[in-house]
Simulated assay, not measured.
Amino acid sequence: MHRIGFLLMDGFQVMALATQSVFEYANMVAGEPFYRVENYSVNGGPVTSSMGMAVETRAAGTHAAVDTWVMAGVGNPLEAPVPEAMLAFVRKAAPRARRVASICTGAFVLAEAGLLAGRRATTHWAYARAMQRSHPDIRVEDDRIYIVDGPIWTSAGMTAGLDLALAMVEKDLGADTARSVAHKLVMYQRRSGGQSQHSELLDLSPKSDRIQSALDYARKHLGQPLTVEDLAETVHLSPRQFSRIFTAETGQSPAKAIESLRLEAARLMIEQSRHPLDVVARETGFRDRRHMREAFVRGFGIPPQAVRREART
Rank of each mutant, 00 (worst) to 15 (best):
G223I: 03
R309Q: 11
F34N: 06
L222S: 03
T227G: 13
D142M: 01
I302P: 10
A88L: 11
V140N: 01
G251Y: 02
G251W: 08
R190H: 06
R129Y: 13
M1P: 00
F300E: 07
H124V: 02
H135Q: 11
M168R: 12
P225G: 01
V14P: 15
M51R: 13
M158E: 12
D137S: 15
A117D: 14
A16T: 15
A121S: 05
A54E: 11
R293E: 11
V228T: 05
V22S: 10
R298A: 15
H124D: 07
V297F: 01
A295H: 03
G44Y: 04
Q189W: 06
T177G: 09
N43Q: 13
I138E: 08
V140F: 02
Q212Y: 04
G299W: 02
S102Q: 06
E38H: 14
Q252A: 14
Q224G: 06
E56H: 13
R210S: 08
P83Y: 00
S102R: 05
Q189G: 02
T154N: 08
W153D: 11
F286P: 02
P46N: 01
D278W: 02
T57W: 13
R309I: 09
V82F: 05
L17N: 10
F300W: 11
S273A: 00
Q13R: 14
R3A: 12
A121I: 09
A167V: 04
R139T: 15
A248P: 06
A93R: 11
V14Q: 15
C104N: 12
R36L: 08
A182Y: 06
M51L: 12
H236N: 12
R190K: 13
C104E: 11
V297R: 05
A257K: 05
A30Y: 07
S50P: 08
M15I: 09
Q272Y: 00
A85Q: 08
R298H: 14
R308I: 03
R99L: 03
M15T: 05
R308Q: 06
T177H: 08
E259L: 12
